[in-house]
């Protein structure tokens, strides 16, 4: 039951988010876009991390929430400091998040490919 609901929740929230983003009247100023971009990367990392953790059954709410906000803020701070120092420190965040992104994707991929027709997670929970 829950494993069927999961994709539905994700797709529904993605749709709502996209629609809200499309219909909000004003855009972001160009000075803010670099920070938001890096925050998006941090958010994607958190989401994929969350997926992977759910699959491994070691998802912890506190870690997920603090990771989402903490990583985003830290990445934005790095971008800001990098701008002050004229060094592209945000690349560090890009590399770390990018690597983890692929690792988490690998976990999800293995889970989806190895899954028997009924699904092992469902039985365990």
């Amino acid at each position: 039951m829950q494993i069927i609901m999961f994709p539905l929740i994700i797709i529904a929230s993605l749709l709502i988010g996209v629609v809200a983003g499309l219909f909000i009247p004003s855009g972001l100023p160009s000075t803010l876009t670099p920070y938001i971009a890096i925050a998006i990367l941090a958010g994607l990392d958190s989401v994929f991390g969350g997926f992977a953790a759910t699959i491994n059954n070691n998802f912890k709410m506190k870690i997920f929430i603090t990771g989402f906000f903490g990583n985003a803020l830290l990445a934005m701070l790095l971008t800001y400091i990098g701008k002050l120092l004229d060094v592209d420190i945000y690349l560090a965040a890009v590399i770390v998040f990018g690597t983890r992104f692929f690792q988490n994707f690998a976990v999800i991929r293995r889970f989806l490919l190895n899954r028997p027709s009924s699904g092992p997670t469902q039985k365990k929970s």
Partner: peptide, 20 residues
């Protein structure tokens, strides 16, 4: 809980990506 948390983060993320 995990699904709701990931779902809401997905919502925020989708919103920001579109806006961005």
């Amino acid at each position: 809980h995990a699904q709701i948390a990931i779902g809401s983060v997905c919502l925020v993320l989708a919103f920001t990506i579109t806006l961005q």
